[in-house]
Computed example of a mutant assay.
Amino acid sequence: MNSVLTALRVFEAVADSQPIGLSELARRLDVPKSTVQRCLKTLHEAGWVRPTSEEGRWSITGRAFTVGSAVAAGDHLRDAALPALSALQSAVGETIHLAVPDGDELVLVERLDSPHQLRAFLALGTRLPLHAAATGKAYLATLPDARIAAYLQSAPTKVTAHTRTDPVRLWNEINLARKRGYATTEEELHEGISAVAVALRDRTGVARACFSISGPSSRLTPELFEEYGSKALLTRDTIERVLR
């Protein structure tokens, strides 16, 4: 039983501070390095944690999606969000995606499809890179500067030819998202798709989820970003009032 509890503590510590190294985990948990290493090995073999591109550091994996979805349902996130998101989808006529944080990525947990034949589509469970997805940029804008800097130092990669990876440009976008309350992307996650997104925060200011309005770039043009951003912010306010 003690070994199980220790492994759970290690998993929670990784989730809380990822990416994180063995020495820091041992220090934070006040557990011998050898014990932490065994726990990491077991969690890795079970598919719950993975080594990152930074040598010797760990983060959690997508297996947390199932648990995260259960938590989202259990704390009424979907119940609170879906009525307002459905109203938003009807107003703009584009696909709405709802995603929750999972380390240095977001995981898609809900989708409201556009009635148009040509539309944005992401499968539930899709993992979204923070620097390439509008929801990811909206999430980044809620994080402390130190966590953003650490993420940008991990050398984000291009997902499409339009993905922005330059740290200076990404910082500018994050600061702009902080200023106006919403983030945007143009064909950075998928060719031909643009999006506008905002973050949903709890009463402490921590982002619990993000949602986006996504559609073909031929229809969701930059001229609509401000209008859709305003609609998304009003929807965010409605959902956050219910959540609180």
Score class of each variant (00 low, 15 high):
54 E>C: 06
43 L>Y: 03
39 C>Y: 01
38 R>F: 03
41 K>N: 14
56 G>E: 07
32 P>Y: 01
58 W>G: 07
57 R>S: 13
59 S>L: 04
37 Q>E: 11
48 W>F: 06
62 G>V: 12
75 D>A: 15
50 R>F: 05
68 G>V: 11
57 R>M: 13
34 S>H: 01
51 P>R: 02
67 V>Y: 08
57 R>Q: 12
76 H>R: 14
43 L>D: 12
34 S>C: 03
53 S>I: 07
45 E>H: 13
73 A>G: 08
54 E>T: 14
77 L>N: 11
32 P>N: 00
36 V>F: 01
55 E>M: 04
59 S>R: 11
76 H>Q: 09
66 T>S: 12
52 T>R: 00
41 K>E: 15
70 A>G: 10
53 S>P: 15
39 C>G: 08
56 G>M: 04
34 S>K: 00
62 G>C: 10
52 T>Y: 06
62 G>R: 01
56 G>N: 09
42 T>S: 13
68 G>T: 07
34 S>D: 06
64 A>D: 13
48 W>P: 10
71 V>G: 13
77 L>S: 04
33 K>Y: 04
57 R>D: 03
74 G>F: 05
74 G>Q: 08
38 R>P: 09
39 C>N: 09
46 A>M: 05
62 G>A: 07
57 R>C: 12
40 L>F: 01
36 V>D: 02
44 H>A: 09
75 D>C: 09
55 E>G: 09
68 G>Q: 04
48 W>A: 03
72 A>R: 07
72 A>M: 05
44 H>M: 15
56 G>V: 04
54 E>A: 08
60 I>G: 11
40 L>A: 02
47 G>H: 03
40 L>S: 02
38 R>L: 10
48 W>L: 06
76 H>M: 13
44 H>W: 03
59 S>V: 04
42 T>P: 13
73 A>T: 08
36 V>R: 00
69 S>P: 08
61 T>Y: 00
54 E>F: 14
44 H>K: 15
65 F>C: 13
43 L>C: 06
57 R>L: 06
38 R>Y: 15
67 V>C: 10
69 S>A: 13
58 W>Q: 08
39 C>R: 00
49 V>W: 01
66 T>N: 09
63 R>A: 09
51 P>K: 03
77 L>R: 08
56 G>I: 02
67 V>I: 08
38 R>S: 13
45 E>V: 05
34 S>F: 03
43 L>T: 05
70 A>Q: 09
45 E>G: 08
56 G>L: 06
61 T>F: 01
48 W>T: 07
35 T>R: 07
76 H>V: 11
67 V>D: 13
72 A>L: 11
39 C>P: 05
46 A>I: 04
48 W>N: 02
32 P>D: 11
42 T>L: 12
32 P>F: 01
61 T>G: 02
54 E>P: 10
42 T>Y: 10
69 S>M: 12
71 V>D: 15
46 A>C: 00
53 S>F: 13
32 P>T: 00
34 S>L: 06
35 T>N: 04
68 G>A: 03
61 T>Q: 03
63 R>Y: 14
32 P>K: 00
62 G>L: 10
42 T>A: 15
36 V>T: 04
43 L>G: 05
63 R>C: 14
44 H>L: 05
62 G>S: 06
70 A>V: 02
44 H>D: 04
41 K>M: 15
69 S>D: 15
52 T>S: 06
45 E>P: 11
74 G>K: 13
48 W>E: 07
58 W>T: 03
32 P>G: 03
41 K>C: 14
75 D>L: 10
51 P>C: 07
77 L>K: 00
